[in-house]
Design a protein around this nucleic acid. Structure first.
Lengths: 198, 198, 198, 198
DNA sequence: TATGAATGAGTTTTCATTCAT
DNA sequence: CATGAATGAAAACTCATTCAT
């Protein structure tokens, strides 16, 4: 009965909204927020342009949605890692996940990092703050692991680790070389191993 | 005192071109390439919009000019550092220069790094390659210092150092916190000190 | 009575597109492609400038549309003439149609011919080829009539006839004298009559 | 003494003016008046842009100069043909000259004809009248030959011949086929031969 | 809600023409 | 006269957003 016309419709309400969020996350990662048009996102989400505005009142809301989609992905990852019994292993799992994305990173950089770079150049809208929030999410989780490991200054270590990730993603991207992810990833893993146990 | 009417006229030929390059570098750093209009740059350089095209045929050429202006700044810095007798001191001088820019970094990130991020999301124009070239310039200089220090794998060390710089700039920017530059800068200095002499 | 507000709204969908095509054909004929602005066409079609791009992505597409509008007019004419039983009469009908347009020809020349002249001075876009195609349409129809008449070398005769039309239109236009169309038209009619029956 | 700085200067005053006229004629023929910029002409004439305005106050004056350059070329040709003793031979010589230009015609059409087509689409400036004048020059010369041949209605014959030339040039151009010039040229020669002597 | 179409403000780019030297 | 540079008025094109069904 529902979806009798098939094609673009989906079963549950909100499915369209989700398609739009995912499309926004993907396209904005690839093209950047500024070069992405509403029409681009609508096309990928298979939603008519005019209809987008029922789910997101402005383009900025769509970019915010892209950000929270990335936050969601991050949570999926950390939730998964949280099942590991050892904090050190969790951190190593995180790094391995990063390295696993090396081709994407070499082509488009870290989704959240590059978006933060772009949004930080705006004055209005507060989207820059939103981007910072997502990065802080990661920072907090990492800090938590270092604390569990009994490390002194877990916040400083967390900052170092996340900075390293952002740095290596940016370099891999700028040099268009995925090997950067491998080399720096390996270095980070060795560094983690070298840390004293509590 | 001279130039009392103050506006568009300047003493030497080519001065306008230079004003435009500097304005482009500055405005693009602050606003990003995409959000910067030719009119923005023209205003800062105090040049009529139509006249900009006498010096730069397209907007892309202006962005390229901004990039090479950053490359020039980098060369000024490394030329200066090259006067120091010790390679380790040169590298420490570099880091101190980075930290010295902490407020700018916290507000707008590393000029070259953020520009690379933005340009890498384009397919056409080859400006992304240009951005990579500037970063490679830095990489090469740093590698040279590590080699002089007699370090094994100077290229890997250079990559680590420059990545760290890009990472900390991005994090300072995303968190809007200049202290990031201080903390990570100090860590890098300590790391340099810890390296064995040849 | 309906459409009392009278301006941009129309009954059927696609009506606007058609209005734009016709306006393009008319204005381009009068002003030439180069001197015609999108705004000119938009004004005549009573469509807001920005909206034109919903129907035609570039100005070149609008010029192509003007060309195909002329092709359509030509087909209407030949379809009409095809109802005549005798090929010779069809050709004479064609010439009479040309002469019937003498005032328009004296003022602006043959729509397709003048457009071809203008477009052939371009290198890019391939619109010149498009213009050639429309002229070939006419050539082919005329050739078909000569063949039915049992004439030897119907292609050569067709070329002569269409060339004569283009020549007389150009001369009428350059001299601003519609009488040119009458005189040369009469000559062509006499020539047709003088051709041997098969 | 004069021309001590060499390079772009030329011996006689007015040489620059001549270079500009020739360049205008050539470039306008190739690109059309509208697509030709002052800078294009200046480049071909090897004259600095700013200097053009000492010789021609507006772009329209340059186009007029292009026209009169074509008129001059025409006069050179007819002066040359006038040396032939027989009028019929003079007309045949004219046609042969046309056919001799077949490749240029196939690429860019008749210089005067195509310019007339373009200029006739303007309202202001009176350049259209100027173009008509050049064509009338040719018409008058041809008519004179037919009159000398003792033909009745020499003006009508002249119109027919010049129309034929414009038509075949336009068709050769539109079809991008120089062979059109050969075929129609041969037809015109045969036609001339078929005319009764007085 | 759904949808194609409409709107208008903004941006890059081009060029004839003018100006200062 | 000569010349590089300046100027400003178009013009094409883009797109977020809104509107009429």
């Amino acid at each position: 009965m529902t979806d009798s016309q098939g094609s673009t419709r989906s079963r549950t309400a909100g499915a369209k909204r989700q398609r739009l969020m995912r499309a926004a996350a993907e396209v904005v990662h690839r093209q950047g927020a500024e070069r992405t048009t509403i029409a681009d996102i609508a096309r990928v989400a298979d939603v008519p342009v005019g209809n987008v505005y029922y789910y997101f009142k402005t383009k900025d809301e769509l970019v915010a949605a892209a950000l929270s989609e990335h936050a969601r992905q991050l949570e999926l990852l950390t939730d998964h890692l949280d099942r590991l019994p050892d904090s050190r292993e969790r951190l190593k799992g995180l790094i391995e996940a990063w390295v696993g994305q090396r081709d994407l990173a070499a082509r488009y950089g870290c989704p959240t990092g590059t978006l933060a770079v772009e949004l930080d150049k705006r004055d209005e809208g507060g989207l820059d703050v939103e981007a910072g929030r997502v990065i802080r999410l990661l920072l907090t989780w990492v800090e938590h692991q270092f604390r569990e490991l009994g490390q002194p200054e877990p916040d400083g270590l967390a900052l170092t680790l996340v900075s390293a990730y952002q740095g290596m993603s940016l370099m891999a991207n700028a040099l268009r070389d995925p090997a950067v992810m491998d080399r720096e990833g390996a270095r980070l893993l060795a560094w983690l191993d070298s840390l004293e146990a509590a």
